[in-house]
């Protein structure tokens, strides 16, 4: 784990932290690397290959890249057709269109038909920034979680993204990758192992556990834990890069050890990570939980920074909610 040297403000040791890679570049590079060795890998776009970084894949493998134009439903259907022949299609668009626009096609042609469609959505939640409310997905994890047996991943950094991508490709069944496409400094050392369905403990602590997902909220969770340390609060931080299947053992273990859980996601506070964690807690080890996320609101336009504040997706808000949670925990114990 090298998050302290790469993420903290001072003493940046890692060159990648100074000039962090774009997640979309890592995504396209890894797809190309896999495609080099495996002819079954095909990439599809819906007029957003430049936004999503897959234009480089098209240059390298023109025959194995399909741009269907602005037609997301068609893209998913075409991907499902390719999958019936044993190909491994990776269709991609913004999260809003991946989840909302083509949900039935993804549900039926990809999942119900038991195909291997590896859907990628980019610019999750507030990352849509200037594209505004129509493009701001606060519900995509929720929608996807309703699909039986699907895999849902939201990697927090380039290292975990690169490690999870081949597993997504070769695990049988359809999946949804929620991808931040902008530059993100590596959180993990290259040697770190990742496994679909196994969350990562980033730091140990006793008073509460923050479970975050995705590039924005895992970073905010780490910062919040640092701030909480200033108040003498010892915080365990978990990067839950796989939302489905959720790492039940890790959630139960966190509940047992710290007795209070705060989930943090760039998504509605309901239906996503927080709900998945709550389901595990209520069935196996009920402890108090607080869900940091968007509270029943639609997205709107602004800078990402503005929107994070607007919707409470900040380390400061996590800290405030953590204090409230700890007070409730103390009151309950007494």
């Amino acid at each position: 784990m090298n998050y302290k040297t790469t993420r903290a403000d001072g003493g940046v040791a890692n060159a990648a932290a100074v000039n962090p890679p774009e997640m979309r570049e890592v995504y396209a590079r890894e797809l190309s690397r896999m495609a080099e060795e495996d002819e079954r890998i095909v990439v599809l776009d819906a007029d957003l290959m430049r936004a999503n970084g897959t234009a480089t894949f098209r240059e390298r493998f023109p025959e194995r890249h399909i741009d269907v134009g602005v037609a997301e439903a068609n893209m998913i259907g075409v991907a499902a057709g390719l999958s019936t022949l044993g190909l491994i299609p990776f269709p991609g668009t913004f999260t809003c269109f991946a989840a909302r626009r083509a949900f039935d096609q993804f549900f039926i042609s990809a999942n119900y038909a038991r195909q291997n469609v590896k859907l990628t959505g980019t610019d999750p939640g507030v990352a849509a920034a200037y594209n505004g409310g129509t493009h701001m997905s606060f519900e995509d994890i929720g929608l996807m979680r309703t699909i039986p047996r699907i895999v849902i991943c939201e990697p927090s950094d380039p290292v975990s993204l690169a490690a999870l991508l081949p597993q997504i490709a070769y695990r049988r069944g359809s999946s949804y990758l929620r991808l931040h496409r902008k530059p993100i400094a590596p959180l993990y050392a290259q040697s770190e192992d990742f496994e679909i369905g196994k969350g990562k403990v980033i730091s140990e602590g006793n008073d509460l556990t923050i479970i975050g997902t995705g590039a924005i909220m895992v970073a905010e969770a780490i910062r919040a834990a640092e701030l909480l340390a200033g108040y003498g609060v010892s915080t365990r931080v978990i990067d839950m890069h796989t939302i489905k299947p959720i790492d039940e053992q890790l959630v139960i273990d966190a509940a047992r050890r710290t007795g209070a859980i705060l989930t943090a996601e760039n998504h509605q506070a309901s239906t996503g990570l927080g709900s998945a964690v709550a389901e595990v807690l209520t069935e196996h080890f009920p402890v108090l939980q607080t869900r940091v996320g968007v509270q029943e609101e639609f997205g709107e336009v602004g800078t990402q920074e503005y929107l994070q504040k607007r919707f409470g997706l900040t380390a400061d808000n996590i800290v405030e909610r953590a204090h409230q949670l700890l007070a409730r925990k103390a009151a309950r114990v007494l």
Partner: peptide, 28 residues
């Protein structure tokens, strides 16, 4: 335009901008 709290978002919004008759931005 596009600044936090604006009534002029990048994509047309009938609930924010006088004179806009329909909210759009998701093509089609």
């Amino acid at each position: 335009l596009n600044q936090g709290g604006t009534n002029l978002p990048s994509h047309c919004d009938m609930n924010r901008t006088p004179g806009i008759d329909m909210t759009t931005g998701s093509l089609g």
